[in-house]
Amino acid sequence: KNAAKIVNEALNQGITLFVSDNKLKYKTNRDSIPSELLEEWKQHKQELIDFLTQLES
């Protein structure tokens, strides 16, 4: 999976991924984040940080 797909899947579940101080963060109104999503974010962390940083610049 690529970073764009992961970010879109998160958005579809009401979760916004973003970068703050070079760290991957998220915002959501959900009570909890599915563990498989958290695991996927960890596996692709640097790719996600790079992707989101490019989007914001």
Rank of each mutant, 00 (worst) to 15 (best):
A10D: 00
L37V: 05
Q54R: 14
V7L: 06
D21T: 04
N12T: 12
G14T: 02
K42S: 13
A4Q: 12
L37Y: 06
K5H: 13
I6P: 00
E40H: 07
A10V: 01
F51T: 02
L38T: 05
P34V: 03
F18T: 04
L38R: 06
I49F: 06
L17V: 02
L38H: 05
K42M: 14
Q13S: 07
E40A: 09
N12G: 10
K5W: 14
T16P: 01
V7Q: 02
I15S: 01
Y26K: 01
F18S: 05
E36I: 09
T16N: 06
A10L: 03
K45I: 15
K45M: 15
E47T: 06
N8C: 15
N12V: 13
E39I: 09
D50L: 13
L24S: 00
Q54P: 07
D50Y: 12
G14F: 04
W41F: 08
K23D: 15
L48G: 00
K1Q: 09
A10R: 00
S32C: 11
F51P: 00
S20K: 13
L48E: 00
L11K: 10
I33D: 02
S32D: 09
A3C: 10
I49D: 01
K45P: 02
Y26R: 01
I6F: 03
T16W: 14
S35K: 12
D50M: 08
L48M: 03
K27H: 10
Q46R: 09
E56L: 12
L11R: 12
N29W: 10
E39H: 08
I49E: 03
E40N: 07
F18M: 05
N8I: 13
Q46M: 08
N2W: 10
N22R: 07
P34N: 05
L38M: 12
V19G: 01
E56M: 14
F51K: 01
E47M: 14
G14N: 05
F18E: 04
E56F: 08
K42E: 15
N12P: 01
L52E: 00
T53K: 12
G14L: 03
Y26W: 15
K23P: 00
L38E: 06
H44Q: 05
V7N: 03
Y26L: 03
A10F: 03
S35C: 13
H44P: 00
S32H: 13
K25Y: 15
T16S: 06
D21G: 12
V7S: 02
V19E: 02
S35D: 12
D50K: 09
N2P: 12
S35V: 14
F18L: 06
H44K: 05
E39R: 10
E9K: 07
Q54D: 09
L38G: 03
T53D: 05
Q13I: 08
N2K: 10
I15C: 04
D21R: 07
L55P: 09
L55M: 12
Q54K: 14
I33K: 01
L52Y: 02
I15M: 03
K25R: 13
L38Y: 08
L38P: 03
A10K: 01
Y26G: 02
Q54C: 11
W41P: 00
L52H: 00
F51M: 03
N29H: 11
E9N: 08
S32A: 09
Q46V: 08
S32I: 12
K23C: 12
K23G: 06
G14H: 05
L38N: 03
W41E: 00
I15G: 01
R30K: 08
N12L: 15
E36P: 06
G14S: 04
Q13M: 15
N12R: 14
E56C: 11
E39G: 06
K1V: 13
S57L: 14
Q13A: 13
H44S: 05
A3F: 04
L17I: 05
E9Y: 07
K42V: 11
K5G: 07
L17W: 02
L48R: 00
E56R: 10
E56V: 13
L52P: 00
A4N: 06
N12W: 08
T16C: 14
Y26S: 02
I49A: 02
N29A: 11
K25E: 08
K5A: 15
E9C: 06
K45L: 15
N29Y: 12
E9I: 06
E9L: 05
P34D: 05
I6D: 01
L38D: 03
I15W: 03
K42A: 14
S20H: 14
S20Q: 15
L17G: 01
E40F: 10
A10S: 04
E40Q: 13
L52F: 06
N8S: 14
Y26Q: 02
L24W: 01
I33L: 06
N2H: 12
Q54G: 11
E40I: 14
L17E: 01
L52N: 00
S20L: 12
Y26P: 01
K1T: 10
N29T: 13
N2R: 12
K23S: 10
K27L: 08
N29Q: 11
W41V: 05
P34G: 04
L38C: 10
